[in-house]
Design a protein around this nucleic acid. Structure first.
Length: 719
DNA sequence: AGCACGCCGACT
DNA sequence: GTCGGCGTGCTC
């Protein structure tokens, strides 16, 4: 076609037109469109002989289009321009009178070296090979591809999560020589689980056992996780464990060091700092170290010969990545387990519905202890119902019912007492004292807050004071603190037990552990310190109703998880370990805690989700944006069969005018409140939904859609 | 996403 | 006649 000829005429390197700087190049253009082009370059440097084309994932730029771009490999870069290395390329240039102009340097990764390109046009040369380190190897690339597809996201976004930024200094140093495989560890406390030794034996054999492991309460799980990892190492394979936070990771790290010594594993957490972290990551990428313990970013760690992936406490929300496309560690590790043919271990003190589903579908086996072993390890759980509390005179005077006082007083003679309070802060939110309906602003329906001890309650959104508040539901006029924060609880307790030290652990100061001496330890969920020695003598779980009343699909599961994690730090009932939970004993999660039956709870939740066609039995995606944006998405999308739509409903706190930095929009759509639409598809159609939504994203990005829309697979916060 | 080319209204 | 609006399309 003439178009191609026209391009040839402008091509300075095309045969006959003479190259730049007089360099002669063997750059023969294809003559028929069907045949692939031999690479031609614009500048005319000599090309690499064998595989002169590098397929490059350009880091920024057309991230939404999610495609590779081919570049010519100059002969001088032939050796170092290997697949997986970081490169710098010129991108976005324009042809002006036979010359390329403009274009900015972008970082990228070579994903493949090729004989030729299917791009009809002259290739720009690689500008620079930044480093010979092959950080995006084939296995990691394939994983990123799969994660991107699963979450309807772009490859570049996922790669950015998976490959840490380069730190030249860390790259210069060689990694330590790999150590020989360690001997297999003794099963130890794994014997407490009926199928524990069998699981380890399968792991040692090189099989790929998959289990959902309900860990017994108590301090043994980090060691047990380490034993599983060491067993994989002993069999000549690698192991990866992902934990919800740095403290948990540090415990497993310590257990692994005790088991294997230094040098056979690395700890990948943010605490180490970027350079040290990259140094450790490189040791993994280079195959010098085959075991990784870390927080969620470690889920991508390119462990060689991966034999086991493990995830602890998958219900913890920090396992969901914050950056696009928000992959969840459980999903990423499930993908890895399948693709890299590894064993899988999903552990926790409780089970998520997703975990229960893995067992229910037969994909994983349950790894649990007998009822007798549970009874031996679990503390005694006692409940305080609302009725108990109301009858209790002490509840009027102070914050704690008399049972809690009795238990605390007695337990403090034997050791530390844990007090779990749902939120930090000082009387943050208010509710009707009579019916417990959350108190809302009469003007804007925002939540009422108490800024200081004595002040008037005011709206947390518009700031209006609410001096003459009354409850819309029951007409009550008294407010009560929906959640009493850690600080106030600590103050009250300190006054009642003046001789006992009070320690707090919350978001700003999280204690890893406390001693075994009597003390009151006030902590928010997830920040509970481990008590040395036999554990806490007792725990008080306060404001259970606040935890359970959250308008969230997972409220029950989450309440049980938080209670059980705290209760698991308490001594067994046989050693008088007692937990007092302020919640209705008739509620399902409370019963599950009392009986210590997290598996049963998760199975019942799973059945209910199946009945209601909720995730994870069905798969969902959310589309958030202005009504126009949502309509545009829905006009574009080709949904898989069986899909149905829920909503749209207004999204709290987000609207087009207020929310953020929206520059344009003088077209009258300003002020339109944002809405969220949920798309639900039947089991098995999740991949099709993701693919459909990805197409929408690409189409909208290409068209330069005016109204932004957030598309998200498997949103966590479904009300 | 940027960034340039392209085809229709009010200015020196 | 020209400067400039942002609609459309491309980037290896």
């Amino acid at each position: 076609m003439s178009g191609e000829n026209g391009q040839d005429e402008r091509d300075p390197d095309a045969p006959g037109t003479g190259g730049q700087e007089g360099e002669q190049l063997a750059l023969i253009r294809e003559t028929v469109r069907k045949t692939r082009a031999k690479p031609r370059t614009w500048r005319g440097a000599a090309l690499a002989g064998e595989l002169p084309v590098a397929r490059v994932l350009v880091d920024k730029g057309l991230v939404h289009l999610d495609q590779y771009f081919d570049y010519a490999v100059p002969a001088a870069m032939d050796a170092e321009a290997q697949p997986g290395v970081r490169v710098r390329v010129r991108f976005g240039a324009r042809v002006v009178k036979g010359r390329r102009e403009g274009g900015t340097l972008h970082d990228g990764f070579i994903v493949e070296r090729r004989v030729d390109s299917d791009f009809h046009g002259p290739l720009a040369p690689l500008a620079q090979v930044l480093s010979e380190e092959r950080v995006l190897g084939p296995a990691l690339l394939a994983l990123c591809r799969q994660v991107a597809d699963r979450y309807a996201g772009s490859l570049a976004d996922v790669v950015q999560l998976a490959v840490p930024p380069r730190m030249a200094r860390a790259e210069r140093d060689p990694s330590p020589a790999p150590l020989p495989d360690p001997p297999p560890p003794a099963p130890g406390s794994w014997e407490r689980y009926a199928t524990g030794p069998a699981y380890l034996a399968a792991l040692a054999r090189g099989d790929t056992p998959r289990a959902v492991w309900l860990a017994l309460p108590g301090p043994h799980w980090p060691h047990e996780l380490a034993v599983a990892m060491a067993t994989a190492l002993a069999g000549g394979r690698g192991a990866l464990a992902v934990l919800p936070d740095g403290r948990a990771a540090a415990r497993v790290d310590q257990a692994l060091t005790e088991l294997l010594g230094e040098g056979r594993h690395v700890l990948l957490t943010a605490d180490a700092g970027p350079e040290e972290r990259y140094r450790r990551w490189l040791a993994v990428s280079r195959g010098a170290v085959k075991a990784v313990v870390g927080t969620r970013a470690a889920m991508f760690a390119p462990v060689a010969d991966l034999g086991l992936v493990a995830l602890w406490d998958d219900g913890d929300s920090s396992h969901a990545e914050q950056h696009a496309p928000q992959p969840h560690a459980r999903d990423v590790l499930l993908l890895r387990s399948r693709e890299e043919r590894t064993a899988f271990l999903l552990g926790g003190v409780t089970s998520t519905v997703e975990g229960a589903q893995l067992v229910d579908s037969g994909w994983a086996l349950p790894l649990a202890a007998s009822r007798a072993a549970v009874r031996e390890a679990a503390p005694l759980i006692r409940t305080v119902s609302d009725a108990d509390q109301a009858r209790d005179e002490a509840a009027r005077a102070a914050r704690l019912p008399s049972l809690a006082w009795q238990v605390t007083r007695e337990a403090l003679t034997r050791g530390p007492v844990l007090v779990q309070v749902p939120r930090r802060g000082y009387l943050p939110r208010l509710a009707c004292d009579r019916c417990r309906t959350p108190a809302r602003c009469a003007a804007c329906a925002g939540p009422l807050e108490l800024k200081d001890q004595a002040g008037t309650p005011a709206c947390g959104w518009c700031g209006r004071p609410a001096a003459d508040w009354h409850c819309d539901e029951c007409g009550g006029v008294r407010l009560r603190a929906r959640v009493v924060g850690a600080r106030r609880t600590a103050e009250e307790l300190g006054r009642v037990f003046p001789s006992v030290p009070v320690r707090t652990s919350g978001r700003d100061t999280v204690l890893a552990s406390v001693g075994d001496a009597p003390a009151l330890v006030v902590a928010t969920p997830g920040a509970e310190p481990v008590a040395d020695g036999p554990g806490y003598a007792a725990a008080l779980l306060l404001d259970g109703w606040a935890l359970l009343n959250r308008p969230d699909l997972r409220a029950g599961e989450e309440a049980l998880r938080r209670w059980a994690l705290a209760a698991a730090l308490v001594r067994p009932a046989g050693q008088h370990g007692t937990v007092v939970v302020l919640a209705e004993p008739t509620l399902r999660p409370v019963q599950a805690l009392v009986r210590w039956d997290p598996a049963g709870h998760a199975l019942r939740e799973l059945a209910e989700r199946a009945e209601l066609r909720f995730p994870p039995v069905a798969r969902m995606a959310s589309v958030t944006g202005s009504p126009a944006a949502i309509a545009d998405v829905m006009d574009t999308v080709r949904l898989p069969p069986g899909a149905d739509l829920l909503g749209p409903v207004p999204v709290a706190g987000h609207d087009a005018a207020g929310g953020g930095r929206r520059e344009r929009g003088d077209r009258g759509e300003r002020g339109e409140p944002w809405e969220r639409l949920l798309i639900r598809v039947p089991p098995g159609a999740g991949a099709a939904l993701a693919a459909a939504l990805k197409q929408v994203r690409v189409a909208r990005a290409a068209r330069g859609a005016a109204e932004p829309a957030l598309i998200r697979m498997d949103p966590l916060d479904i009300g």
